[in-house]
Every structure is written in structure tokens, then in C-alpha cells.
Design a protein around this nucleic acid. Structure first.
Length: 898
RNA sequence: GGAGUGUUAGCUCAGUUGGUUUAGAGCAUCGCCUUGACAGGGCGGGGGUCGUUGGUUCGAAUCCAAUACACUUCACCA
């Protein structure tokens, strides 16, 4: 047979993915088996695969594939979210490039464009996940704008409204002037920006009605936003501020627009900061709004939706806020109002999506009351541990957010998304109803109107016409995308519309959630909240938080920085398995991952190592021969080692230490299987192997492949199918995960000792440049009374002619020691006695030092009296071993005349 | 400003209730090896007073306190 000496992932990956798809291995339907469910964190419909996705989805695939091998009914539900803001922005931009303005289109027309865009460009990422090997149940692919998903969202909105948890409020919100929509607090990022602090003089109206001259009896405020002075409706001073006693009860004149505004007092004002005088602009600042309400101030909104100035901006009307800032500061300077400017660093809110500077704005919005909803979510994670976080440290973050929860603004001034099911029948603040359809809304609206008349007139009968469908107008706004995704673990199984259907009952609660800590509030917490509200149960048992993928300079990988490697190119270069291994090897749970392409190279090399381990075995000619003793021992030892590693791997998985699980397997396959076992059983050049050993090693190799499959699905399936002709039912992807068996510790201990002997012999070969081909003779003084069991293995791996047991040291040989055993190898040529003596003396110095540290402990009365017996026994053993070793070393020195 | 997490080998990290041969792994590095599965390999070596300072203890990388630095996160005053 002819097998390439290098594993070539490009040639096999697509083939196996197609094979898996053809045979429907990833598809799940409810049955009698234990379910293993995992829902994907839905990527944006606009998204393309980046490093974070690769890490996250690799972990999910490892968990899913392992569960499948364990015989569970594994179901990994893929999907996407509609990403309101991002998608709408893309569609608007595309239309603009075609000369179409959004404002020229009706809602229906715009949505058609959005769907066209989604169908054409959306979902690229799901195809990319297939390249990575993800074993999602693609038949279940869900999109948050699918009919059932949207219907679920609307149903939940109406339900929460009816429970009194959703309300409409006129509030100060985070306004993104670019997307022209509201953002939730979580979608605003604060960045430090170098700006200016402007000191501006205001004139004061004296009691006689005259205006004071500037700068003398006047007052000075400090602001970072001089353009907002046109919206000022008060000046505020601290009542305890001695400097401004004379201003109390007076009025100030806003420069340029010459409006007279009251000077109010409030201890909110920090005497130390700025000038101690605060301009109050209730329409454009959260704190100012609070002051405005407290003191009954007028509210003047000077901005349009795009943050250009409106008619209150006077001659600046129509100009952008930042343009106006420059121009107005110039005008203020020219007119003598501007005292000075100072460099000032302040934090500016930026839209996460569009990067536009957020403008606080007053508007009608829909809010979800969180105070009570949050309670079961706090209990589940922090008290009952019904939901476990890995790593645990994120519980603190979670706690902090939930305990300081604010109501969730769920409306967005966008079209792409579920339209808010509120219907207005007139202009009054309360002239609306909420219903799942317009028809239901009409009934409710008529009832509402009727009951009002009843209260007003006291009469049952009404002669006034009833409302018709045409009288109802649905709220223009759409719901926050997270208001769809917070239902994800339920809605993907249609658990909202049909809460008792077979699928939701089988798959919910899901098992694991794998996601980034950056969306712990956006998504994780809210899913937990909705899970308890709608199913009185946790949505998942375990949440595994991956770290952020950073580059070598510790910068977060992002599109804007351009420091993220092209995911698909990486797969092309290193193979999907190589990339998966590379990502997993250094991703301890929750720790950020310093991505380095060398890790993928390591993964690729590992794949090649396994491949060649297969090639070697495959190349052997198999004959009925007696099994060599060394092979028999080697196979028995490896079986023990395998079981030991399997136990470790299970333990790591239990703690979501995926990286450690992989490393344990990496060492098992590379060190134990390839470097040790294969060398032990390997027949001499061009000699056949005995059938017993061959069958055993094939079995062992297959067991290895099963453990590796979740991490390296393509390579392992390829090799598996090379080993034998397999029917679709025998594919590795659905093989049976090895069962844990008892570990024979004696075998492992015996081999470890033999390994030290082997290593000693190899070192001597090294030092004396004796090639492996040259046969050596080994003699030993067996002080440790080690069994001769392992001699055949030692002989095989170091090419010995004989092993002799002797009583006294051999002259003219090189020696080494393992514990108190001493080994001698005769070599040709003169022995450098001085070097031998030096070597022994170094060992002696170390051992004596060690003995001393042990004796120090043992001679400490308090140690002997207080330490547990087991610990003392260990120390005594150390002492005895060290003493025996010292005796051996000193004997050797004596015989060398040292 | 509040809270949290971390600091162990050149790099990335383990070190699980304090005690398992006077600290481990992978990678990198340094020697030697043109071996017959694999140079994407083999064999062998070097490398850390566990951020700093105190304390508790028979015993501290591990527990406590202080301190320095780094990161995360929340809230923010013109």
C-alpha cells in the first residue's frame, strides 16, 4: 500500500464532512436515550468567522462529539440572530449606494430589502463552521426572525405587558444619532477622549432688573459641551457655597440666545469641581434631567434625531453638534463670553455598533421591569447552584449586575426586528393597547374605550361609533435583538408557543452553554431570567466562559485593528484539526488566549504524528508467531497507562478543563503510544510482527482515536476508516467511548522504574557517542530488589545483549544509578575516571542536601508530634531512600578510588 | 472612584482540603543524530530563591495582612 508520509488535511476534510452529513449523524430527534443539548450562541447574520467564534465553536463541538460517543442523544442547535442595528445599517448603506434613501421607502419595502440582503449575504458564518468540523444539527438551523421565533417574541411581550412588567416611559435614553435608535446601557462603551473644558461667563440679572456687566458680578460655568448652552434652563449652585451667596434667587442670561434662566440651589453641585457653577440642560444630560424634575425646570431639546441642531439652535440650525461646538466657541470668544479653555480628558459614550458618540435624549420607550424577574436568576446561580459557572469568578460579575439591575429598555427605533405589538387608537398617553394581532388589539381597544365611557357617563349603552382597524396604528419601533435571543434555549424548540411539546420537554433544560464573558449581561443572565419566568427552570446546567482571543501584544483581536488572522486561511494552512488543537491547547477556561500561529503548527504536527503512528503499524506484515515477552509487557503497561489517562481526561472534562484533557491525550499518544509502546513492539527491520501483538495494538490505536475524535474529528475518522473497511454504522463519529477500567498501578510503577534505567543507558550512549545499533551489556547491583520483569523491555529499547546481576562494582565501566541500584556498562576505550568521580560527587552532594532537609523535618519534635502519620511515614521513606542512595554512591566512589 | 481577578522557567499556563524525593507541563532554546513511521522526527540537556514585605503554622507557591504592577468590570462631575 502507498500512504503519504504526511497527513494532508485538505484532501480529506471535505470528504468526511460530506460523509457525516450524508449519513445524518448530527441530526437528533427525541428518543429513549439521555439527551445532551447545547444551543449555539447565535452569531450575527452579518458576521463572518473570526478567532473568537473558532474557539467557542471548537469547544462546543468537542463537548457535543464526546457526548455523542458516550451514547447520548447529542443535539447541537445552530442558528443566527438578526442583529437589528448592524443589519439595518448594512442594508441602509447598500441602499444608499444604489441611490435609495431609507426615508423614501415604506416599512414593508424596506423589510423586503432587508430580507433580500439576509438571504444573499447572511449566514456565511454557518457555512464556515462546517469547515471547522462543527457537528451541528443543521436541520434545526434557526433564525431569530423566523415566524415561530417572532411569534414567540410577540407572545412574550404581550404576556409581560399583561403581567404589568412592561411599561412605556418618557425617559432619558442613550441615543445613537447615526443608527437613529436607542441603545441599552450595555451597548454603550465609554472611551476616554481628549477634549476641552470651556469656561463661559453668564450675565446676571440684578434686583433692579439691570444686567450686571460680564465677569464682575457675573458668574462663570465650566462645560465640555458649549453647544448645549442653547438648551440651558437653569444655573445651579451649591447652597453652602459662600462664593455665590449673592447669586441666590437671581436670574442668569444665557449667552447668544439671551434667555433669562433661574439660578437654583442644590447640593448635587460639587463645590470643588470647575467653577462651582453648573449649567443645567435637562434635555441633554441624565443628571440635569433629574435636577430639572426636582426644581420644575423647563426642558428645551435643541437636537434633531441625527444630532444636528433644531430651531432652538438659532443660526446653527441644521448643523452637526461637533461643528457647532467649534463655531459656537468662536462666537462666544468673539463676544467676550469665553473666559478660557483647558485641556480635559472625559469619558465619552460610544455606540458599540456604529461607534457614534451617544447623545442622551428624551423619548418614549418601552421598558421591562427587572426587579422581580431577577430574583430566581440570582438564586439559581448564587444560592442553589442550579446553574454552574466555569470559571467561578464570573459569579461576582453576574451578582453585581443583577443586584444593581436597572429596567431594560427594549425598544429600538428601527424597522428590522419584531415590531412592538402596541396599537394606538388616539393621541393620549394611555390611548393604546397591546395584543398579539391587530384584530385582538381592536377588541381590546374598543373595550378600553367603552369602559372609559362607562366611568365617565355611568351609562352602559354607547351611541358613539366603535373603533375600526383603520383607527389603530401600530408602534413604529422594533424590539431589541436580545429580546429575541433571551428566549433562545426555549424558542429553538418552540417552547414558548407550545410549552408542552415533545421537543421542549425532551431537550430542555439544555446541558452546556459556551460563550464569552462579554455577553454575560446581554445574554446569559437574561436567558436565565426568561427560563425561570417561562419554564420555572434553568435554561442550562453549566456555563463555560471562554477567554477573549488576543494577539501576542495582548490586544483584543478585532476587525478594526486588523490583527485577526483569516480563519479560513488558517484552516487551509494547518488543517481544521490543527487549528482546533492550536486553539484549545492554550485556552484554560476563562483565561484570555494569546493567539500564536505556532500553536496551530503544533496541532498540525500532532496530526502528522498520529498519522505516522498509523503508517508504521499499517506497514507491518502480520504472521502467526509467538509473542515476544517485551511486546506482551508493553501492551499490558500501555493498557494500564491508557486507563489512567482516561480517568484523568474524564476528570478534566468534569471540570471543563478542556485544554488539560487535550494535553493529557497529547502526551498519551505522543510519549506513551508513539515513543514507548510502538518502539517496544516494533519488529526488527523488514521483519513481520506476531498476530497477537498486532491485533492488540490495533485495538489500542482505535481506543486512542475515540478519545481524540472530539478534538480532531477529521484526522481520526480518516485513520479509522483506513484501518478497516467500515459500514456507515461503524463510523468513528458514532463509535463507543471507552469505558473506564481499573488501573494496574504496579505495571505503571514498574515501567516508570524501567524508564529511568533506559534513560541512564541512553545517556551513556550519548556521552560516549555509541550508536544505537551497537549492542551493549548491562550489569547491575540490585540493591532495590527490583523484579526482572522489565528486563526484556529495557533490552529491546536500548539494544542490550545481556543483563547480568552482580554483587560488586565492575571496574572499567561507565555507571549510573537509579535509586540505590547501580548499573554498569563496559565501553571500549579508556574510562575518564575523574569525570566519573565528579559525576558521582555531584549526585552525592544533591542527595546529602536532600537528606538534610528531610532530617531537619524529622528531628523537629513539633513536626513529629503534630504532622499526620502518613506524612511522617513519607518523610521516613524519603530518608531511607536517600540513605541507601548515599551508601551506593559512596561505595562507587570507593571503588573508583575517589 | 467601587468591585473583582491575576502576578510561578524566554513564552503560555498547571500546581485541586497547606506535607508525594529540597517546584511541574507544553512550546521555545541549546547539544548530538542525513535511523528503515514521522526532520512536521529521535535522544539528551540547560533554565524559576513561585511580584515584594510581613504574619499564621512543625511545615507556605498554596492561608492572612500590607504593598507594587497588570488586566477585567461597574459607576461616574460640569
Amino acid at each position: 500500500m502507498d500512504i503519504s508520509s504526511k497527513y494532508e488535511p485538505q484532501k480529506v476534510e471535505n470528504r468526511w464532512y460530506d460523509y457525516w452529513m450524508t449519513h445524518n449523524y448530527f441530526h437528533s430527534t427525541p428518543d429513549g436515550r439521555e439527551p445532551y443539548t447545547i444551543v449555539i450562541p447565535p452569531p450575527n447574520v452579518t458576521g463572518v468567522l473570526h478567532m473568537g467564534h473558532m474557539l467557542n465553536n471548537t469547544i462546543q463541538d468537542v463537548l457535543t462529539r464526546r457526548a455523542r460517543l458516550q451514547g447520548k442523544n447529542a443535539c447541537w442547535v445552530p442558528g443566527m440572530d438578526h442583529a437589528s442595528i448592524a443589519t439595518e445599517a448594512k442594508v441602509v448603506a447598500k441602499l444608499k449606494s444604489e441611490g435609495i434613501e431609507k426615508s423614501d421607502l415604506s416599512r414593508e419595502e424596506f423589510l423586503k430589502h432587508a430580507w433580500d440582503w439576509t438571504n444573499e449575504y447572511g449566514g456565511v458564518i454557518l457555512e464556515q463552521l462546517k469547515k471547522l468540523g462543527c457537528s451541528c444539527d443543521w436541520d434545526r438551523t434557526v433564525f431569530t426572525m423566523d415566524d415561530t421565533m417572532s411569534a414567540s417574541v410577540i407572545k412574550v411581550f404581550v404576556d409581560l405587558f399583561n403581567k404589568g412588567l412592561i411599561y412605556r416611559g418618557y425617559r432619558m435614553v442613550n441615543w445613537d444619532p447615526e443608527a437613529q435608535t436607542t441603545l441599552s446601557d450595555e451597548e454603550v462603551i465609554y472611551e476616554e477622549k481628549q477634549g476641552l473644558l470651556y469656561y463661559i461667563n453668564y450675565k446676571v440679572v440684578e434686583e433692579d432688573g439691570k444686567t450686571s456687566p460680564l465677569g464682575v458680578e457675573g458668574l462663570t460655568i465650566a462645560t465640555t459641551r458649549p453647544e448645549t448652552i442653547l438648551g440651558d434652563t437653569a444655573i445651579c449652585i451649591n447652597p453652602n457655597d459662600e462664593r455665590f451667596k449673592h447669586l441666590k434667587g437671581k436670574k442668569a442670561i444665557v449667552p447668544i440666545c439671551n434667555r433669562a434662566i433661574p439660578i437654583i440651589e442644590d447640593d448635587y453641585v460639587d463645590i470643588e469641581f470647575g467653577t462651582g457653577c453648573l449649567k443645567v440642560t435637562p434635555a441633554h444630560d441624565m443628571n440635569d434631567k433629574a435636577l430639572g424634575e426636582k426644581h420644575g425646570l423647563e426642558t428645551i431639546d435643541i437636537f434633531n434625531a441625527d444630532a444636528s441642531l433644531n430651531s432652538f439652535g438659532m443660526h446653527y440650525e441644521g448643523k452637526d453638534r461637533f461643528e457647532v461646538r467649534k463655531e459656537i466657541s468662536k462666537e462666544l470668544e468673539e463676544k467676550g463670553f469665553l473666559v478660557k479653555t483647558e485641556q480635559y480628558i472625559n469619558k465619552v459614550g460610544i455606540s458599540e455598533r456604529t461607534k457614534a458618540v451617544i447623545e442622551p435624549r428624551l423619548s418614549d420607550q418601552w421598558f421591562l421591569k427587572m426587579e422581580d424577574l431577577v430574583k430566581p436568576a440570582i438564586k439559581a446561580v448564587l444560592e442553589d447552584e442550579e446553574i454552574r459557572f466555569f470559571p467561578k469568578k464570573f459569579k461576582n460579575t453576574y451578582r453585581h449586575w443583577l443586584e444593581n439591575i436597572r429596567d431594560w429598555n427594549i425598544s429600538r427605533q428601527l424597522w428590522w426586528g419584531q415590531q412592538i405589538p402596541a396599537y394606538y387608537f388616539s393621541d393620549g398617553q394611555d390611548d393604546f393597547v397591546v395584543a398579539e394581532s391587530k384584530e385582538e388589539a381592536l377588541i381590546l381597544a374598543n373595550e378600553k374605550v367603552k369602559s372609559r365611557r362607562r366611568t365617565l357617563s355611568g351609562s352602559e349603552e354607547s351611541t358613539v361609533d366603535k373603533l375600526t382597524l383603520e383607527d389603530l396604528e401600530q408602534d413604529e419601533d422594533a424590539l431589541d435583538t436580545w429580546f429575541s435571543s433571551w428566549l433562545w434555549p426555549m424558542s429553538v424548540f418552540n417552547g414558548i408557543l407550545e410549552p408542552d411539546n415533545k421537543e421542549i420537554n425532551y431537550y430542555y433544560p439544555t446541558n452546556d452553554l459556551v460563550t464569552g464573558p462579554d455577553i454575560i449581561f446581554f445574554w446569559v443572565a437574561r436567558m436565565i431570567i426568561s427560563g425561570y419566568e417561562y419554564r420555572q427552570e434553568h435554561p442550562f446546567e453549566n456555563v463555560y466562559f471562554t477567554g477573549l482571543v488576543r494577539d501576542k501584544q495582548r490586544r483584543k483581536m478585532s476587525k478594526s485593528l486588523g490583527n485577526s488572522p483569516d480563519a479560513l486561511k488558517l484552516i487551509e494552512e494547518y488543517g481544521a484539526d490543527g487549528v482546533r488543537v492550536g486553539l484549545l491547547l492554550s485556552s484554560a477556561a476563562g483565561n484570555d488566549l494569546m493567539f500564536d500561529e505556532d500553536l496551530c503548527k503544533q496541532g498540525k504536527n500532532f496530526a502528522n504524528k498520529i498519522w505516522n503512528g498509523f503508517r508504521l503499524v499499517k506497514g507491518w506484515q502480520v504472521v502467526d508467531l509467538p509473542q515476544p515477552e517485551a511486546s506482551k509487557l508493553g501492551l499490558a503497561w500501555y493498557t494500564a497507562k491508557f486507563n489512567q489517562t482516561l480517568a484523568e481526561v474524564e476528570d478534566h472534562f468534569g471540570k471543563y478543563r478542556i485544554s488539560d484533557a487535550l494535553m493529557a491525550l497529547y502526551k498519551l499518544v505522543w510519549d506513551d503510544y508513539s515513543s514507548s509502546l510502538l518502539e517496544i513492539i516494533k519488529p526488527a527491520y523488514q521483519q513481520p510482527i506476531d498476530k497477537t501483538s498486532f491485533d492488540a495494538v490495533i485495538h489500542i490505536f482505535e481506543q486512542n482515536l475515540k478519545l481524540l475524535h472530539p478534538f480532531m474529528p477529521f484526522l481520526t475518522e480518516e485513520v479509522w476508516q483506513h484501518i478497516a473497511d467500515r459500514s456507515p454504522k461503524e463510523a468513528l463519529v458514532i463509535a463507543e467511548w471507552p469505558k473506564e477500567e481499573a488501573v494496574d498501578a504496579d505495571l505503571i510503577g514498574g515501567f516508570d522504574f524501567a524508564t529511568e534505567v533506559i534513560s541512564g543507558i541512553r545517556t551513556i550512549r550519548k556521552e560516549k557517542n555509541i550508536p544505537q545499533k551497537e549492542v551493549l551489556e548491562l550489569s547491575l547491583i540490585n540493591e532495590e530488589k527490583v523484579s526482572t520483569t522489565w528486563d526484556p523491555v529495557i533490552s529491546k529499547l536500548t539494544n542490550l545483549a545481556s543483563i547480568s546481576y552482580i554483587d560488586t562494582a565492575l571496574d572499567g565501566t561507565l555507571s549510573f544509578r537509579v535509586k540505590s541500584n547501580e548499573y554498569f556498562i563496559p565501553v571500549g576505550g579508556a574510562i575518564d575516571v575523574a569525570a566519573e568521580i565528579k559525576k558521582i560527587q555531584e549526585e552525592l552532594t544533591y542527595t546529602k542536601g536532600f537528606l538534610q532537609s528531610v532530617q531537619k523535618k524529622l528531628s523537629n519534635e513539633r513536626f513529629v508530634n503534630n504532622a499526620p502519620g502518613q506524612v511522617i511515614a513519607i518523610e521516613r521513606k524519603k530518608q531511607a531512600d536517600a540513605e541507601a542512595k548515599i551508601e551506593t554512591l559512596e561505595k562507587s566512589l570507593g571503588s573508583l578510588g575517589g
